[in-house]
Deep mutational scan, measured.
Amino acid sequence: MEVRTIKVFTTVDNINLHTQVVDMSMTYGQQFGPTYLDGADVTKIKPHNSHEGKTFYVLPNDDTLRVEAFEYYHTTDPSFLGRYMSALNHTKKWKYPQVNGLTSIKWADNNCYLATALLTLQQIELKFNPPALQDAYYRARAGEAANFCALILAYCNKTVGELGDVRETMSYLFQHANLDSCKRVLNVVCKTCGQQQTTLKGVEAVMYMGTLSYEQFKKGVQIPCTCGKQATKYLVQQESPFVMMSAPPAQYELKHGTFTCASEYTGNYQCGHYKHITSKETLYCIDGALLTKSSEYKGPITDVFYKENSYTTTIK
C-alpha cells in the first residue's frame, strides 16, 4: 500500500517557510505537534488534498525554529505562539472599519479597549522592536488589523473576551517599542525636605499616572512627601515624541487643539466601556464603527496623549 502524501510549508514567522512532505494517514499533531492554519487549530486533523502548498504555523520545537521565533517575536515564552494563534482565530472574524481616516474595530468580545489602543497607536510616533509587531502594525494602518490585535493580546497575556485596560495595554506595548531616546527629568520640591531631581528613561519617561493635564504637570502637581507634608512635583525636561497622561476616570474637559487623542471610560472596574476622542479640525468621538463630532467635550476621561518633541522648564 502506497503512502499518500502532500507537500506543505511549516513556519513560526510566515517569513521562513520549511518544506514538509506530510503523510495523509496521520494527523498534523502526530507529525508536527500543535499546528495552526489561519489561526485555526488543526492539530487533530489529517492532511487533505486542499492543504497542498498551504502554510501551517507550528510551535518552535527545534533550534532553527526557536531562533526564527525569537528573532521575529522577541520572546522565548513557549506558550506565546499558541496564544497568538488562538487569538487570531477570533480577531480574523472582527470587522476593521476605516473611521475618520483611522483603522478602528467594530465592537465584539469586549474589544473596546483594543480599538482605543489601536486608534491611539496610529496617532503617536512609535516604532516597535519585534519585527512581528512592526509588520502587523503597518498592515493594521492599511486596514488589516487582525494579526496586530492578536499579537497585542498575546504580548499582554490576554484572551479574547476578557476586559482590558488601555493604560495597561499601552504599557505592555511600550515595553516592546523603541523608547531608548526618551528621557524625563522631574523635580520634587518640599518646604521641609528641599528639592530632589529624578531622571527617568524609556517607558517611565512617557507615562504618568495622577493627572490628565500635561500643562498642569509642567506647572506642578501636589504629591505627598515622605515627611508627610505636601510637596510639588513638576516637569523639568521632556525628550520624547509623545507623552501619555493618565488618571482614574473623572469628568474632564478636553479643549480642541490642546491634545492629540484621549480615552474615555464609562462604567466601573468590573464592567465598563471605552471610547476614543481625537482632536482634528474639530473633536471626534470614535466608538467602534461609530463616529460623532463636537466642538467641545466633557466626560469621564482616563488617558490623554500629547505630541511632544523637546521641553525644558522655565521655572527657576
Rank of each mutant, 00 (worst) to 15 (best):
E52P: 04
V203Q: 04
V67A: 12
D63C: 08
Q216I: 03
I277D: 03
A250G: 10
S171P: 04
Y73G: 04
G143V: 02
N100Y: 12
S240V: 02
K95Q: 14
S25E: 14
C182E: 05
P300L: 07
Y36A: 06
R184M: 04
E52D: 13
T211M: 05
G33N: 03
L81C: 08
L59F: 10
V8Q: 05
H74D: 01
Q30D: 14
T169W: 03
C149E: 01
G164V: 07
K201R: 15
D180H: 08
E68L: 06
A117K: 04
T232S: 05
N187V: 10
E204Q: 15
E162V: 03
H90P: 03
R184G: 09
I15E: 11
Y73C: 00
L114A: 04
Y36C: 01
C182M: 04
D13N: 15
K255I: 14
P47W: 04
L59C: 13
L291T: 15
T282M: 09
D41L: 10
A262K: 00
Y311S: 07
A145Q: 06
T302M: 04
V243H: 00
C112R: 00
G164K: 09
Q251A: 07
C227A: 01
P78T: 10
A146V: 01
T226V: 14
A154G: 01
E71W: 04
T313S: 14
L151H: 02
F259K: 02
L283F: 13
Q216P: 01
G299V: 05
Y73W: 02
N49A: 13
Q230F: 14
K229F: 08
G267R: 15
M170S: 01
Y252D: 01
V3P: 14
H276K: 01
N129R: 14
K106P: 05
K93S: 13
S240I: 02
F9W: 11
M207E: 06
Y28P: 08
V189H: 11
K7M: 15
I105T: 04
V221H: 13
C271R: 11
T278W: 00
L186E: 13
Q31D: 07
E71K: 08
L102F: 07
K44N: 11
T116I: 08
T192S: 14
T199H: 10
K106S: 14
N268W: 15
L119K: 07
L65Y: 07
